[in-house]
Every structure is written in C-alpha cells, then in structure tokens.
Design a protein around this nucleic acid. Structure first.
Length: 716
DNA sequence: CTGGACAAGCTTTTT
DNA sequence: GCTTGTCCAG
C-alpha cells in the first residue's frame, strides 16, 4: 500500500518520510510536497514501524490544514488512524486543558472561550473601570499588547511586564481577574495556560511526553514563543520532533510568530538534522523564476534554490488599471476570457488581495458578469450579530458566570433593561465581589432597585432560570429552538430575511455536530464553534472562483491566480512600510505567486477608494523586483500619474503622494512621512488649514491610531 | 428606556 | 463607504 506512494518520492522527500529518530527540520520550499511528507510520514510510522496512532501528535495552524491532514492520513493508514492527535495548536491545547485545567488554581473544566470580539468588549469594560481613556491606550492596542504578552508566556504579575505600557499592565491584571470570574479563556490563554499547566504539573507533562513519541509540526516558520515552548516541552523525552516549514513563507510576525524558531532550529534541538526540499512540483518555470527573483530581495532567510522540471509556461500578466473599478472589471473580463479560450473551470481560478475590503468591488463585477464565486473569510459567519446572540444564550446556559455573554443578551430582544440598570447591577457585583448573574439574584432578593425595573429583571431572571434548567442541555438543537421560542428572537428579525437564514444555518450546524459526534455536548459544541472559522468550510467541490486574502491562501494551490492591489501602501501595506516589515510583505506576495500552477495575473490601480475617498497610488515596489522579461504589461495607466516612472524602477520608494485629494500647506502633505518626538514615525493622513495653525492628522503605528496635531508642534 | 440621527473611527493579515 | 458608538427627543 504505502510503498506505492513512496515510489514517487524523490530522494530528499523519501529521506524525510523515512526519518525515524531525533529532531529533524525539513526546509520545504513552496510546492515541494510539504503536506504530503507529513502525511506519508505518519502513515509510514504506523504501517512500517508499528507506532501506535495514539502516540503521534501532528500540529498545524489552521483547522483547514488539520482537516485536510486528517483526511489524507485516514486514507493512507486506515481506521485506527483516527487516534492520531491531529489538530491546530489551539485545538490541541484545548483538548489538554479540558482534561486537566482544574489542576491550575482558580480554573475549572466548564470554561468557555472568548473570541476577539468578546475580548475587546471586556478590555473596554476594564478600561472604563480603571478610568483609562482610550486616548491613553486604544482598546485594540491594549488587546494586542496583552496577546503579545501571553504569546511570550508573560503573565500580569511577571516582572517582564514592567517593560510594557503602565496602563496596559493595569488593564491586563484586571482583565485576567475578570476572565477568571467569568470562567472564560481567550485564545492566548489556550496556549499560555497549557504551558503553565505542564510546567506546574510534572506528572501531567510526563504523561503527555510518554504519549507523544512522535511529534510533527507543520508551518513551523509561523510558530511563536508559546507554541515553540509547547512543542519543546512535549518532545523533551522522546526527542522525535519533526518540523516542516519555509522561512520564505513566514507571514504571521504580527501574531508573534518568531522566524528565529526556524532559523535556530539546529541550536534549539541538538543534533538536529536538516533536509531541504528544493524541487517544486507545482508551478511553471516562469512563475518559479519570478518568485525566486523576488525573494532574493529579502536579507533574512535560509539559502534555498527552488527548481522545477515543469514547462516554462506563460508570462506573468500585469495590468495597470486606472482605478479600482477598472481593476475589478479587468479581472472579471479576464475570467470570462479564460473560460472562453481554455478548459479552465471556475474552481481553477483564485483572486487574492491584501485586505478584505478589496473584495467588495470584485464581487460586484463578478456578480455583474454572472461569474460564480465564493468569498473565503471576510465578515465571518460566526461574528454576525444574530449568531453571537444565540451563542451568548447558550454560553450563559453552560456558564452563568459569563459576564460578557450575559450582558450581551440582557436586553436582547429589548426587554426594557438599559444602561442605568446594568450599572446598578455592576455596582452590586463590585461591592459584594460576586458574579453578574449572582448580582441579579441579590438585586431581586433585596429589592434594591426601583419597582418597575424589578419586574423586568425578574422576568429576565425567570427566563434565564428556565433556560439553565432546560432538561436536555446536550440536545443542542432542542435548546436553540427553546431559546428562540422563549425569547421570541425571530420576531425581532421580522424584516431581516438574511439574519433569519443565518439562524437557520446555526441550527443546521448543530444538527451536523450532533450527527458527527458520538457524545455531543453543548460545551463541546461551543468550543468547536469558538475555534472554527469560515476558512474551514471552504471546499473545492463547487465550481466557483475563490476570493480570499493572501494570508488565507497559504497552503493552497490553483492553476490560475490573480493578485490585485499591487500598489505601494497596499502591498506592501503602509503599516508595514513604516514599521520596517517590508520583508514580511514580500513573503506574503511570494506566497501569493507560488500558489499558482500555470498562470499569474497581477493588477494594480492608479487610483483607489480609501476610507470612502479617492486616493492616488503608485505601483508596488514588488512589481519592479520581478524579472522584467517575464512580465507581460497589458496597459499602462500609471503613466500619466505622478511619479510613475520613478516608482516603477526604484525599489526604495517609501511614500506615496496622492494625485487627487492633494492638500498643500507648504510643509505638510497627505502621504508624507514624519517623525514625532513622542510617537515616532507616522504617516500624514489629513491636513486641515494651513501654516502653523494647520491641523495635521497623522497615523502613528506606535500608538496604533491617529493623532491630530497642530502644525507648529511638529517642528522638532 | 427606546429608536433614530449623527459622528467617529476605521482596514491589515487569524486561532 | 460601512459599522460602531453617542446623543437626544419622545
């Protein structure tokens, strides 16, 4: 069986698959058969070396990758393969915590997971209580700093936290306290607490070390410090740690991914071996040459030389559109063309962009031409208001101490409980040190609120009690219907067809969940929903064009790839140009190009709508970093526009000067970069007035937001 | 307390 | 251009 597969492996691939003991790093270039190596190795361990599936752990980054791996492994290594632990870092940690989290002080197994929206709300609440205005730290910035700390396994009381913003320190402490009171974990906790659990409980650590004789990690270049730590601890005993990655595809630096993990693998794991997979089986010679040339502009990387035996193939098309509408029209008509002149089906085609907002126009144009498409990601299903509402009810049923969820639904559908009442209950919460739910009972018992409100609270409390005491909680579908019935939620959505359909969809998901699991529980359902994303349900079956961000494109391949928005400040994104993260943007573009098997179409626009205003732009520096002879330039619309020529051939452009919307105060211009004594580098977004009195709106990455500053204060 | 009107901020990228 | 938050009349 598996021998027949091994026959088509090249020497390096085969060495990797057959590698048995000790740490191994497989540096796998784009399209070199990375996923295949992992799955074949798992099947090889099971069938050739009698390793029990239960003793293998395989970790990926996305559910999509995990599901794909499961499928492939099940196909290769028959039924008992179901016992291999395959999952994302987050789901694996969840599994570990669900078993043993009660061994950590103050935690119990009934916890629920807060997504980033819940997280932000809680942070805002905390900031409100601490009287920290969002001008001092923006809630989002606070969140990313807290996440960052957790990614480095720094807790709210660790001395290392002293290096953080002093406001953030206080927010972090209170935030943690509130999470515990709500019996909730955020995404970061799943990883951070797993490390804590393993560190504080040698017996737990040992049992997992014994279990996981073989550990495989996909996309190792994207691991951050906690993830490294988890892998390192678990593999310490058997030392059979097998990681696969490509430093050229590291695109999650912003989430704490540390490229050093892959660059220093040999140092971290003594007598580590390295195997390089340099043969690409995916792309044409032309595509590969272009990608190789592009990536040489990065300094920070392992030397790799990707080659292929594939045909030369077509040139890379590059279209300079006059504006974003023109760009979208071009894409859609190219797709129509492809359909007419070739055998490509819609599902062979993908369109990638840097930011989700870019999809709108493209969707419009595809719709216009009746081209079927599916948008992956974007406004995610699970983030929709009605879905979050229903889930909030379910979360409260599982865990009444969940304050964020309880507050979410306290007045949904409207039942006359407003901010004043919420604040009153909040006061009880703080005075008595009880949960919000308990505070409601106290208010009722002591009648500490005015009579008219008390009636409403009483009604709410009875509703909650009924839900919490629902006899068959693990009949998830039944419970959802019960919630809908008792709250008359659907009546509220009378005129909102789409939202009602979404409610139907969540019921479908629950039905499916109950069918799939042997012992479906409400709690597991909520967990799986919390860790799920739109990407997971993405299937290649239907014949539709795929639209997605460059980030979501990683790990996929398509015969035809369009990449749009090839402009400075979009790709590379302007935040990155200011923060000196252009190399990561280049890798992102590299990921995009290398998804393509046969054809690559690039496009950029000379003008584009940004924040509802027209903005001029110049071509991305990355265009000029591709070999000129491999590019087929279709039209040149940047020609008439400002600085076009200079931009095309220079690779050091750092500012864009809009052709429209151009405002001149003499010294300050929109698009100009400046350095501020307190906030560091920033980009001017808006200028009002002129001379010393001019108000200049500047985006500072250091504070993660905009500041309005009077021109005369900008002098130094 | 509610709902509508208006203002502000916002857009990287995801588990 | 869209979504979220805030203010005010009813």
């Amino acid at each position: 069986m598996s021998t027949s597969h091994k026959n088509n492996l090249n020497t390096d691939q085969s060495r990797a698959v057959k590698h048995l003991g000790g740490p191994l790093l497989v540096l796998a270039g784009a399209g070199s058969g990375k996923t295949r190596i992992i799955t074949e190795r798992i099947s090889n361990l099971i069938s050739e070396h009698n390793v029990r599936p239960f003793n293998i752990l395989a970790v990926t980054f996305t559910n999509k990758a995990a599901n794909e791996m499961k499928e492939r492994v099940y196909r290769l290594a028959q039924k008992e393969a179901k016992n291999v632990w395959i999952g994302t870092f987050h789901s694996t940690c969840l599994r570990i915590l669900k078993r043993d989290i009660n061994k950590l002080d103050g935690y119990n197994r009934n916890f629920i997971i807060y997504d980033d929206g819940d997280q932000l709300k809680l942070i805002k609440d905390c900031m409100g209580r601490l009287n920290i205005g969002d001008k001092l730290v923006s809630p989002k910035s606070a969140r990313s700093q807290i996440d960052g700390a957790k990614n480095k396994t720094i807790g709210p009381n660790d001395p290392e936290l002293r290096e953080y913003d002093k406001h953030v320190q206080r927010i972090y402490s209170l935030y943690e306290e509130e999470l515990r009171k709500s019996n909730a974990l955020d995404f970061g906790d799943l990883l951070h607490l797993t490390v804590k659990l393993l560190e504080k409980n040698p017996d737990v650590l040992e049992s997992y070390q014994n279990q996981f004789q073989y550990i495989l990690v996909d996309e190792y270049q994207d691991t951050n410090h906690v993830q490294y730590k988890i892998v390192e601890m678990l593999s310490r005993k058997h030392r059979n740690i097998f990681v696969v990655g490509d430093d050229n595809q590291s695109i999650y630096g912003w989430r704490g991914a540390d490229i050093k993990n892959i660059l220093n693998f040999e140092k971290d794991f003594t007598d580590a071996k390295i195997i390089k997979l340099e043969q690409n089986y995916r792309s044409t010679q032309t595509i590969l040459d272009a990608a190789n040339k592009l990536i040489t502009h990065n300094k920070n990387r392992h030397e790799k030389n990707l080659h292929t035996k594939n045909d030369v193939g077509d040139l890379i098309n590059y279209y300079e559109a006059s504006d974003d509408r023109d760009e979208a029209k071009h894409i859609s008509s190219q797709i129509v063309n492809l359909k007419k002149t070739s055998d490509y089906t819609y599902k062979d085609i993908a369109v990638f962009f840097r930011t989700n907002t870019q999809s709108r126009l493209i969707e419009e144009e595809l719709l216009q031409k009746s081209i079927p498409y599916k948008m992956v990601g974007g406004t995610e299903f699970y983030k929709r208001k009605e879905i979050k509402d229903i889930l909030a009810f379910l979360k409260v049923v599982v865990n009444p101490s969940d304050e964020i969820s309880l507050k979410r639904i306290i007045n949904v559908p409207p039942r006359g409980i407003g901010n004043v009442t919420i604040n009153n209950i909040d006061e009880i919460t703080r005075d008595r040190g009880v949960s919000f739910y308990e505070a409601i009972q106290i208010a009722l018992k002591e009648k500490s609120i005015s009579n008219s409100v008390l009636i409403k609270i009483d009604r709410l409390n009875k509703l909650l009690t009924k839900l919490i005491e629902f006899p068959e909680k693990d009949d998830i579908v039944g419970l959802i219907n019960h919630v809908l019935h008792k709250t008359k939620y659907l009546d509220m959505l009378e005129k909102e067809e789409e939202r009602r359909e979404n409610i139907g969809e969540i019921i479908n998901l629950a039905v499916e969940f109950q069918k799939e699991r042997e012992e479906p529980t409400l709690n597991d359902f909520l967990d799986s929903v919390s860790l799920a994303s739109d990407l997971d349900n993405y299937s290649e079956n239907s014949d539709q064009v795929t639209l997605m961000t460059l980030h979501s494109a990683k790990g996929l391949e398509f015969p035809v790839v369009f990449i749009v928005g090839m402009e400075e400040n979009l790709l590379p994104h302007f935040n990155s140009t200011i923060n000196g993260q252009v190399e990561e943007e280049r890798r992102l573009f590299y990921v995009g190009i290398t998804r393509a098997k046969e054809k690559v179409y690039l496009a950029g626009a000379a003008r584009r709508m940004v924040f509802g205003k027209q903005q001029g732009s110049i071509p991305s520096r990355f265009i000029s970093e591709l070999p000129e002879e491999l590019i087929n330039l279709e039209t040149r619309k940047f020609e008439g526009s400002y600085q076009s020529k200079k931009a095309k051939r220079s690779s050091t452009i750092t500012t864009s000067i809009p052709t429209r919307n151009y405002q001149d105060t003499g010294r300050y211009k929109v698009g100009q970069k400046i350095v501020h004594s307190a906030f560091g580098e920033g980009l001017i977004k808006k200028v009002e007035g002129s001379g010393d009195d001019a108000k200049v709106t500047i985006f500072f990455p250091s504070v993660g937001g905009h500041k309005k500053i009077i021109a005369s204060y900008l002098e130094n």
